[in-house]
């Protein structure tokens, strides 16, 4: 019996490991390609093993010969703006949806949910027309506004799920002490749901960081591009060697991978809770 269990365990372990290797491989291949000399890449001689002695070579060329660092900076600015605006707006909505019963609640939830159904690629045509009228093209602020429309609803769900889990007694006691709803939210609820706020912030930040369509359509000037646009622009042009392109892809992906791994549980909880109840 014991032996059989041990056997089953190892079979599972092997199956899972095989799956994990396949799943991880493309990310590994980004790293590998960034460390392989370009001529080896084009001649088909890419080794499956890493050559760590070339770990920094391509990245140095990337930073000296392209505006990639500047693009990363632009991405960070827009992502920060999107995060702050999304989380602030989402906190208000999440608190109302979690703690009150009121007429129109279902409608409001639907308005937030419907942003999941509206494809960005459909919205972009009228949004482009609007942005031309409002002179928001080439403005980082315009991009922040557009991104927030799509990342705020996700934040609403994550935060609503978190506030649902805060014991009511805590708020009751604050109310007895004479705190209004706004003060209660700020001093009683916020500290407790801080981890979920962090998760919502991470997902908003990287939604914007990873976003390509709005960034490419609204930021027309090359120096204002975000990293996603810049990186995609390398594809199909032959001036930038492939190892340099992939070092960009790696540097661009790494922060997202690290932060998503840290907060994945809360993101999943928020997204599914929002769709089940919303």
């Amino acid at each position: 019996m014991r032996q059989r269990r041990l056997f089953l365990q190892s079979v599972r372990g092997v199956a899972a490991l095989a799956m994990a290797i396949v799943a991880f491989f493309p990310f590994y291949w980004i790293v590998n390609t960034s460390m392989t000399p370009a001529d080896e890449l084009y001649s088909g001689g890419q080794s499956v093993w890493l050559d760590l002695s070339r770990a920094q070579y391509a990245f140095q060329i990337l930073t000296t010969e392209s505006p990639f660092l500047r693009w990363l900076g632009n991405s960070a600015v827009v992502a920060t703006g999107t995060t702050i605006l999304s989380v602030l707006l989402a906190l208000l909505a999440a608190y109302a949806l979690s703690r009150f019963r009121f007429a129109g609640k279902g409608l409001f939830s639907f308005i937030f949910f419907s942003s999941q159904m509206l494809p960005e690629a459909l919205i972009i045509v009228p949004l482009y027309a609007l942005f031309v009228s409002l002179q928001l093209l080439n403005q980082p602020a315009g991009l922040v506004l557009a991104n927030t429309a799509f990342s705020m609803p996700v934040a609403v769900w994550i935060l609503k799920a978190a506030i649902d889990g805060v014991p009511l007694e805590i708020e009751e006691s604050a109310r007895v002490d004479g705190c209004g709803p706004m003060k209660t939210l700020r001093y009683m609820v916020l500290p407790i749901i801080a981890p979920s706020i962090a998760a919502a912030a991470v997902i908003a930040f990287f939604d914007s960081w990873n976003e390509y369509l709005f960034a490419t359509t609204f930021m027309r000037t090359k120096s204002l591009w975000l990293a996603s646009t810049g990186l995609a622009s390398f594809q199909g042009e032959y001036q930038t060697p492939l190892d340099v392109v992939f070092s960009g892809a790696f540097v661009f992906s790494l922060p997202a991978v690290i932060f998503f791994l840290i907060v994945q549980k809360r993101i999943v909880a928020g997204l599914t809770a929002g769709s089940v109840k919303g």
């Binding site: 490991l17 799943a23 990310f27 980004i30 990287f206 996603s228 992939f246 892809a249 790696f250 991978v257």
Partner: peptide
């Protein structure tokens, strides 16, 4: 349960976090 589950789980989660532009490149 199996040995190395945490590592396997992290490896299986990675693709979700990789930005689309990088996914397309690779």
């Amino acid at each position: 349960y199996f040995f190395g589950r945490v590592v396997v789980r992290a490896m299986l989660t990675v693709p979700w976090a990789v930005p689309t532009v990088a996914v397309a490149l690779v």
